[in-house]
Design a protein around this nucleic acid. Sequence first.
DNA 1: CTGAATCCTTGTCGATACTG
DNA 2: CAGTATCGACAAGGATTCAG
Lengths: 118, 118
Amino acid sequence: MSKDQHTQLCPAPIIFNMIGGKWKLSILQILIFRGTKRFGELQRELDGITQTMLTKQLRALEKDGLVERMVFAEVPPRVEYSATGDAMALKTMFQTMHQWWIDHREEKSLEKTLELQQ
Amino acid sequence: MSKDQHTQLCPAPIIFNMIGGKWKLSILQILIFRGTKRFGELQRELDGITQTMLTKQLRALEKDGLVERMVFAEVPPRVEYSATGDAMALKTMFQTMHQWWIDHREEKSLEKTLELQQ
DNA sequence: CTGAATCCTTGTCGATACTG
DNA sequence: CAGTATCGACAAGGATTCAG
């Protein structure tokens, strides 16, 4: 049992690579908490993302099995994206982060505010 | 209660900014799970990081209140870094990620292996 | 030993134009 | 509507050198 055991087994860096970056987290949250969306809907709700970027991020998420892409053979074309079961299971992680923020960060901001008021 | 409520309150993007990047996660894990380390010890255990990068990452983590820096007025100079209470509380997050990985990723690798064997 | 300062490389992000 | 292709801007990462 080497002393590196934990770091080697820890998937945190891999997970951060999968859902890190400027847009992936927002995309996932929309699909997880609001359900299936079309390409255009996603683009509107993400406020500022370009088609190029949205396509690239969705492809990356799909490749990692977090997003499912469904193409409908219609005119005009329709493509829907949804969170996979694996992605839905990330809710727990979001909640853990949320709790950590409440317990160890919000109070800090409050303390600072109080200090400034003195 | 707008439909944007969750996204707006969610601290995930902020947390990702604080501990994301190529090295911060590894630095935190060493300090959290193995305890206080000197600058040189960290550099050796991080395998490949340069002095410049290690300094920059440590400064950023210190600024966010996740790492504490203690300078000893000795010759030769000695500087020790340790995880703060806030950082220690991130253990839960690491465990959540670890569990998600076990439940939703390891089996996938196994499935793929089995598919390839058929 | 622990760092600061400088310069350089790489990767991410994004604007624009074009297509089935 | 939902993309692809190309090019440029910028930030993150890294190598090297110098210093207390």
